[in-house]
Write a protein that binds this DNA or RNA. Structure first.
Ligand code: ZN
Length: 243
DNA sequence: TATTTTTGACCAGTC
DNA sequence: TGACTGGTCAAAAAT
């Protein structure tokens, strides 16, 4: 009887030790590895593009798990590589608390929303556009007489899938607030921003990346009408890069 | 009360 | 000419 009791205590004690070991391995080894497995900008699969029957442009997707890659072009082909935001958010919600969560994003105040690209916007319309899965929202810059507009498409859960900027601001960017302090370079004045990745870093040290494509490379007939200064700019879905 | 969002109507361009 | 589409307006509702 005593030996059974001893055996029970031995097993009971060791089970607790195993549980603690498992927890520590998960916290200090598995979770960091999960972070490392999130996408890097350099490792992408080769693409197979098929032209759109209506526009003649290309849209294809990277086969890599955490990557949404699309390619457009008629004679010129431009690629973009951005992370799959829903999957990233899912990964974040499953244990990477140090990154901006979707819920946090959804509960931004108006001031915080305005700081997403540094300007203040007022919505003036929404339409279902043929060929788009999600409705397109139309925004104007709230600065007096500013001609700048933007259109964006959101999924039903609020994820932005596409942003198109038209025109130029005729005023400096409003003072950024404490949350998004540095690095917020979206549609820069004068259009000198080159094609490529841009990023902003939040006040909490989190970095959001996205890719810029200038309208001028889009094939003729594309519906993103170019104004006389060729400043219509299409922005792709932003991605979140974990630290 | 002021500002923003929603949403149906309207308009212009295209086929 | 009429249908269709995308962009904008504007009144009502929401914040
Ligand atoms: Zn403006």
């Amino acid at each position: 009887m005593c030996s059974y009791l001893c055996l029970f205590l031995y097993v009971y004690t060791n089970v607790h030790i195993y549980i603690y070991i498992y927890i520590y391995i998960y916290i200090y080894l598995v979770r960091p590895l999960l972070c490392i497995q999130l996408p890097t900008w350099s490792a992408f699969s080769r693409l197979q593009a098929e032209p759109s029957p209506t526009t003649g442009t290309f849209t294809c997707h990277c086969s890599q798990t955490l990557c949404n890659t699309r390619t457009w072009g008629a004679s010129t082909t431009i690629s973009e590589h951005v992370p799959n935001v829903p999957q990233l958010v899912n990964a974040i919600d499953n244990g990477v608390e140090t990154t901006t969560s979707q819920k946090e994003h959804e509960h931004m105040t108006m001031a915080e929303k305005a700081s997403e690209d540094g300007y203040n916007w007022r919505k003036y319309g929404q339409k279902h556009v043929k060929g788009s899965e999600f409705p397109r929202s139309y925004y104007k810059c709230t600065h007096a007489n500013c001609p700048m507009k933007k259109m964006l498409e959101r999924t039903h859960d609020g994820q932005i899938t596409e942003i198109i900027y038209r025109g130029q601001h005729d005023h400096p960017k409003p003072q950024p607030n404490r949350r998004f302090a540095v690095g917020a370079v979206l549609c820069s004045q004068g259009g000198e921003k080159s094609e490529g990745f841009s990023s902003l870093t939040t006040g909490e040290g989190k970095t959001i990346f996205w890719y810029v494509i200038f309208h001028s490379i889009f094939p003729p007939g594309n519906d993103f009408a170019c104004n006389n200064r060729s400043q219509a700019i299409k922005w792709t879905r932003p991605g979140i890069l974990l630290h």
